[in-house]
């Protein structure tokens, strides 16, 4: 028996907006602790991890470990139909994930489960020299600003500032933010702007983002729900001088 009820439909909608732009299919794991997924995109550039502990849900019931394999695009098409005030209920039957929206009316969708042969990958454990927090909206704005001049973005941090910048053929752009945190080293890596943009589609998950940066290391971006019961995080491989 699996049943999960969520009053904030935005959590699923915003998570899968990002997830569906990164991977075509996912294996969600449900157990008594909650729901989680780990997925790696086809070209092994972005890794995504979603964890919704049972405390996130208004009601959560799961007697045995369950693998829920879905096509992310199909799931996203359904989640887009959720209205902000709808309660969302997730259940499974033989071969389907059942998504029910309950508001003015009760609307029920069945999404066919798919076969996924491989095991979900586990995230690599990397040691980072820096970790700091920035407002999510600032990151979103930075992407827009840097996108004016380039399709790549350099992210760097030092004792005082976090900086997003790019040098383009026709001009340069730079965003500086005083992070106010204790950072003892500086770090810089370059990323594909398009890939960062995909991650930042999850703009209703959290007000702030925890960033870990190293030199020519993957970008580790974590969005955490205020309750600490939910996390959506990403690892993005850098662009490296060849």
């Amino acid at each position: 028996m699996f049943k999960a009820v969520l009053s904030d439909s935005n959590i699923l909608k915003t998570s899968f907006d990002a997830i569906s732009s990164i991977v075509d299919e996912v294996q969600m794991m449900a157990d008594e602790e909650g729901l989680r997924l780990d997925a790696l995109d086809r070209s092994h550039i972005t890794f995504v991890h979603l964890e919704l502990k049972k405390g996130v849900f208004d009601e959560y019931q799961c007697d045995e470990t369950l693998k829920i394999n879905v096509d992310t695009e199909e799931l996203m098409k359904v989640l887009k139909r959720a209205k902000a005030e709808d309660m969302v209920e997730l259940t499974v039957d033989e071969g389907n994930l059942i998504v029910t929206f309950e508001g003015e009316a009760k609307r029920k969708f069945k999404i066919r489960l798919i076969d996924i042969e491989y095991e979900a990958p586990s995230p690599p454990e990397l040691e980072y020299p820096t970790e700091f927090e920035v407002p999510f909206s600032l990151l979103k704005d930075s992407i827009q600003d840097i996108g004016i001049v380039s399709d790549k973005i350099s992210l760097q941090v030092n004792e005082e500032k976090f900086q997003a910048s790019a040098e383009g053929e026709f001009g340069d752009a730079k965003v500086e933010y005083v992070h106010g945190e204790r950072i003892e080293e500086s770090a810089r890596s370059i990323f594909s702007l398009e890939k960062v943009k995909e991650m930042l589609k999850a703009d209703k998950f959290s007000e702030s983002a925890v960033i870990r940066l190293g030199n020519d290391m993957p970008l580790n971006l974590a969005l955490k729900m205020a309750s600490d019961e939910g996390e959506l995080s990403f690892l993005l491989a850098p662009r490296i001088e060849s």
Binding site: T46, I240, E241
Partner: peptide, 12 residues
Amino acid sequence: QEKQSSLDAFFN
């Protein structure tokens, strides 16, 4: 000129 790396290099 830099190029896109893969996470595989960091997974192990």
